[in-house]
Write a protein that binds this DNA or RNA. Structure first.
Length: 154
DNA sequence: GCCAACGTTGGC
DNA sequence: GCCAACGTTGGC
């Protein structure tokens, strides 16, 4: 059992968009970074905890709790010439990009980025480090526990 | 295999 | 929309 923070741009898929989907789950397609891909393909397991993070928006922060509900499989958008995620070098025989499926556990009151930065318990969180751009980062179990028990309010 | 140029991310 | 930081590309 591992824990992850996964960024999504709310204009693309917000926590409310996720909540409105069938099964409240979504394929995490469009990741085109090898490190992030490897996390999904090599390390994620069913039931892993996910912090659903809103990025590149007015109020960046953690918007909900989710979980991994399907193991990694080839990202279909890489094969679609009309997709902005199309990758001409990918083939069905040797796909380059993979995605898991993520399912909503619960929406929470937004934990803003500037609040996250105020807690010394989270000083080492990957997402908070200067210059970090990775859209998927692992969380320490202690970070997960702190956030989900101390920062999530009903 | 180096590295400059370029593209992208994402907070502000 | 600016720009710092970083990843990728491709010429050599």
């Amino acid at each position: 059992m591992r824990y992850w923070l996964m960024k999504s741009e709310p204009t693309d898929c917000s926590i409310d968009d996720l909540a409105a989907l069938p099964d409240q789950s979504v394929a995490w397609y469009g990741v085109r970074n090898y490190q992030a891909r490897n996390f999904m393909r090599n390390q994620m397991g069913i039931g892993d905890g996910v912090l659903f993070y809103h990025s590149n928006c007015k109020q960046p922060g953690i918007a909900g709790i989710a979980k991994v509900c399907a193991l990694a499989y080839p990202d279909t958008t890489q094969f679609d010439p009309t997709s902005k995620y199309y990758d001409p070098k990918a083939t069905h025989e040797t796909p380059r990009w993979f995605n898991v499926d993520v399912q909503l556990v619960k929406k929470i009151a937004l934990i803003a980025l500037d609040e996250l930065r105020q807690h010394p318990e989270l000083a080492n969180m990957r997402t908070l480090q200067r210059g970090n751009r990775l859209s998927i980062t692992p969380l320490d179990p202690a970070e997960w526990k702190f956030i989900t028990t101390c920062l999530v309010h009903e």
